[in-house]
Design a protein around this nucleic acid. Structure first.
Length: 614
DNA sequence: ACTCCGTGAC
């Protein structure tokens, strides 16, 4: 207690005419003082001592004071103490409930937040207000729990309570995080009445951006700018990530311009999203510039840069960056290790990759999870160690979604190395778990056909048709200047004059001169021009492996020249591919940047949304 | 009086 403060308290005279007694006055003053101190406290020690004073002075049943105390503990992330205080409250009010719920939200325990809300609902003594609903929707969006969220939304509507901007924003954010963009949009549209602010616009832009609908995100950003309000750092980071998923460097650059104009360049989140955008849009050099300008690096900025290098086939540099980060005592997390393993996988550093997998728990305190194992299975499979990959895959327990990636990786490995047994096993697992069903059927059918099991192959095709599984046509595109050109798998109509074939042969020749005989990329390039006796689906698969190269050739021959050609592909780069592009650069004497948009292509149901692009 | 919403690496 502050002694000077107590000494300075002048007590009112003890007369019956005075409305409060000396004792009351002391109480009121000390309560105000304690509450004031509580709001300032940033140390557990101070809050603890204030708590004992509060209890000693008999404020244990004073809801307002205890609410403040709960909040102080919530701010110190001492949720258990906050919870205990709350549980002992004789009369918790709506603020007490909401404070505890939001406390569990803030400490990453949304499940507990929801269970407290449920308790509040069953208790019935206190009705939730708009603050409570906003917190609860936030918990649902953290859990991506649409079922509970919807029922609470219904409860809110039934209560007849008018939604305010904050509640609606958290609601639309929740629907966005649960991948229900249409409902999110309906909530956004309904907000014309209660007023939208930057947060609600940002929530809607984010909902589009995080659900692979970058065009709508950018469109909405344009509409927002028409309102003459200024975007803030939250909105900019979201728009930039929409540009990344679209792979449109021009738009990304415009967004960068808005960032500079608004003075948000030094914001870390914005800078990291710019870094990621440049990397995904093919400009590693710009990504690096952004990276070196960041003054105080975090695990996320390092991870983004490691991923960027990995995607561009610069495995050694990515690993170097990782070691540098560890030396700076920035603790890597599971995403960082995923980046490291990706780097090894994309650059053929198999031994290094296995080393990182085996030592990451001990050295970096990150226990490998199914995603890390999937990455290593992919790496082993890519470099011909298919049996090891299969053996590893069998030991991993996965859910359906991750299983699709795991067995999908093994499927490609089996296909790449002509292992019918592995293709069969992987396809069956995919079909059984109802994941990537179409591509699994195609691969399985092709595997049977190759092995001579025509009857199996035929019956599978029938099964596929009955199930309504139609294979999406693979497609690639390139962006030159501000135009986008699309190429569909199996479509060689663009090659009327045979120039692509000639270009491919020239490339093959140069690759051979460089000693890349029979390497995966050169042989594949040639195969794209000579499918003669291959059946329709197998041909489509081959072309889908090559279409970015076809696109490139087409672009070189028929399209206006520019300083940079960027290629979107749905392949990961191996060392050979990288080498191929270097050779192409020499041929055309132009910078060629390759990018990887795996994320954009692959969705949970295995569908490809390339067509949304047009 | 105290309590609420939106951003970056996978």
């Amino acid at each position: 207690m502050n002694k000077r403060f107590l000494q300075n308290v002048r007590f009112a005279p003890a007369s019956s005419s005075f409305p409060i007694s000396q004792n009351d006055f002391f109480h009121l003053k000390s309560k105000a003082f304690l509450v004031h101190k509580l709001s300032e406290s940033t140390h557990l020690f101070l809050t603890n001592s204030l708590k004992s004073s509060i209890l000693k002075l008999g404020f244990a049943s004073d809801t307002f004071t205890i609410n403040r105390l709960i909040n102080s503990y919530v701010k110190l992330r001492e949720t258990n103490t906050a919870r205990k205080l709350f549980d002992e409250m004789p009369e918790p009010n709506v603020v007490s409930w909401t404070s505890v719920i939001s406390g569990f939200n803030d400490t990453g325990q949304p499940q507990t937040a929801l269970s407290i809300f449920q308790q509040m609902h069953e208790d019935k003594s206190v009705a939730p207000n708009e603050f409570t609903y906003a917190s609860v929707f936030k918990a649902c969006s953290a859990l991506a729990e649409p079922r509970i969220g919807k029922s609470i939304h219904a409860r809110l509507e039934m209560s007849g309570r008018r939604s305010n901007t904050v509640v609606s924003s958290s609601l639309l954010d929740m629907y966005g995080k649960c991948n229900d963009v249409e409902t999110a949009r309906r909530v956004f549209d309904s907000m014309i009445g209660c007023g939208r602010n930057v947060v609600s616009w940002t929530s809607m832009i984010t909902a589009y951006a995080q659900n692979a609908r970058g065009h709508e995100a950018v469109q909405l950003f344009r509409s927002f700018n028409a309102t003459f309000e200024r975007p803030n750092q939250f909105m900019l980071a979201s728009v930039i990530s929409a540009c990344s998923s679209l792979g449109r460097l021009q738009w990304g650059r415009v967004a960068h311009g808005v960032v500079t104009h608004g003075g948000y360049e030094r914001n870390h989140v914005v800078a990291t999203s710019l870094l990621d955008m440049y990397a995904k849009c093919g400009s590693l050099s710009c990504a690096e510039k952004i990276f070196w300008r960041i003054c105080c690096h975090s695990v996320i900025s390092y991870t983004s840069m490691i991923m960027a290098k990995a995607k561009h086939g610069l495995g050694e540099e990515a690993l170097q960056l990782f070691e540098e980060m560890v030396a700076k005592r920035i603790k890597p997390n599971y995403v960082t290790l995923l980046g490291v393993l990706h780097a090894c996988s994309h650059s053929g550093l198999v031994t290094e990759g296995l080393g990182y997998l085996n030592s990451m728990a001990e050295k970096h305190g990150v226990v490998p999870d199914p995603r890390h194992y999937t990455c290593v299975v992919d790496m082993l499979g890519r470099f011909g160690r298919v049996d090891e990959a299969y053996a590893l895959a069998k030991t991993i327990e996965v859910g359906a979604e991750q299983g699709a990636l795991l067995w999908g990786a093994l499927l490609s490995a089996g296909r790449l190395h002509g292992r019918v047994d592995i293709v069969g096993e992987a396809s069956k697992r995919l079909i059984q778990s109802n994941q990537q069903v179409t591509s699994a059927y195609v691969a399985l059918s092709n595997a049977y056909a190759l092995a001579g099991g025509w009857e199996d192959s035929e019956s599978l095709r029938l099964e596929m048709k009955r199930g309504g599984n139609v294979k999406e046509r693979a497609c690639s595109w390139i962006e030159i200047k501000d135009s986008v050109y699309a190429f569909h798998a199996g479509d060689l109509s663009c090659d009327e004059s045979g120039e692509i074939v000639r270009f491919m042969k020239e490339l093959e020749k140069r690759m051979k001169e460089r000693g890349h005989r029979g390497g995966s990329s050169s042989s594949m390039i040639i195969s794209s021009s000579v499918f003669v006796d291959v059946d329709e689906e197998a041909k489509e698969e081959i072309v889908s492996l090559h279409c970015e190269r076809l696109a490139l050739a087409f672009g070189l021959i028929h399209l206006p020249s520019g300083p940079t050609i960027r290629i979107m592909n749905n392949l990961r780069m191996c060392r050979d591919c990288h080498e191929a592009f270097k050779v192409i650069s020499e041929i055309v004497e132009r910078e060629i940047v390759v990018r990887d948009v795996n994320r954009f292509h692959c969705f949970k149901d295995g569908s490809c949304t390339c067509r949304d692009f047009w």
